[in-house]
């Protein structure tokens, strides 16, 4: 990745703020548990107690310290979203390049598979998967990978086909360069930039998917602390202590929006920088 694209990406104040916010949320999610005043499952008072000096965000429906649970609750969404997205790219990028460059029977099969996955509404697919295997984090990750892969595959395949129409690729074939050389020197570097812009969109999607599952009670099982779950399990108290829902909702929102703003800015600067 060239420095000029990164510089352009961060040229706008909005993008710089977004970067800072992403870093804050990541720090909160990873380091939060070490600074939490109470254990996440420790009952410390009456349910829905108001905000006090000891309990910065009051207590939840079981009387646990909401602030501690907030500090614990970001880890899962961060780990699941990131690992699922990265895994999806590891699966789909090589397949996409292969398919776009060599075509052939494997390409036809991969396209057919991706068509069927496309026909499943994402949220519904995850629900069915979890219904049949029972909720578990590895299943969630596998499910998100299955959902993202065909979409990444299609994009990479299209970009590869586009790039391979370029005359520098034809010239490379015509002078007898090997498939590997063409893949790694001509295709991959030119695929990576648009794919990086796409990565942010997928990551954002993973965050939304996992957080929604957690909200529906299909993420980490109780009594674990998880931002999505915290909102739904405290739903009955929303009129008394709305901040219990607001804090995790805000954290998820900030994380997802900031990733999206960064991605958007990156995609724009790729368009503007000369070397794509």
């Amino acid at each position: 990745m060239s420095t000029s694209v990164l510089r352009l990406t961060l040229a706008k104040p909005a993008a710089r703020i977004a970067l800072v916010l992403v870093l804050i949320i990541v720090a909160l999610a990873t380091l939060g548990p070490y600074f939490s005043p109470y254990a996440f499952d420790e009952i410390v008072g009456a349910p829905f107690a108001p905000i006090t000096q000891e309990h910065w965000l009051g207590t939840d429906f079981l009387g646990r310290d909401t602030f501690s649970r907030f500090l614990y609750g970001g880890r899962t969404v961060l780990v699941v979203a990131l690992s699922a997205t990265v895994a999806a790219y590891i699966v789909a990028v090589p397949l996409g390049i292969y398919s776009g460059l060599r075509r052939g029977p494997l390409d036809v099969v991969l396209i057919a598979i991706s068509d069927v996955i496309y026909a499943l509404p994402p949220a519904i697919f995850l629900l069915v998967l979890l219904a049949s295997t029972g909720p578990s984090l590895p299943t969630v990750i596998v499910g998100i990978v299955i959902l993202h892969s065909p979409r990444i595959f299609r994009i990479v395949r299209l970009i590869t086909m586009d790039i391979s129409k370029n005359e520098y690729v034809e010239a490379a074939f015509a002078r007898g360069e090997s498939w590997t050389a063409i893949c790694f020197l001509d295709i991959l570097p030119n695929v990576l930039t648009p794919v990086t812009a796409d990565f942010g969109v997928r990551l954002c999607g993973s965050i939304i998917l996992y957080a929604s599952l957690s909200y529906l009670g299909l993420g980490l099982p109780p009594p674990a602390a998880d931002w999505g779950l915290m909102i739904s399990e405290n739903r009955i108290g929303i009129t008394i202590s709305p901040w219990i829902a607001i804090a995790p909702a805000l954290a998820i929102a900030v994380f997802s929006v900031a990733v999206n703003v960064l991605t958007d800015s990156f995609a724009r600067s790729v368009g503007r920088s000369k070397e794509i």
Binding site: I246, A249, I252, A253, S256, V257, V259, N260
Partner: peptide
């Protein structure tokens, strides 16, 4: 650019 990145339950809760 903000709402496109929000899950339904966050928007609904807000």
């Amino acid at each position: 650019i903000v709402t496109v990145a929000l899950p339904e339950f966050v928007i609904g809760t807000v």
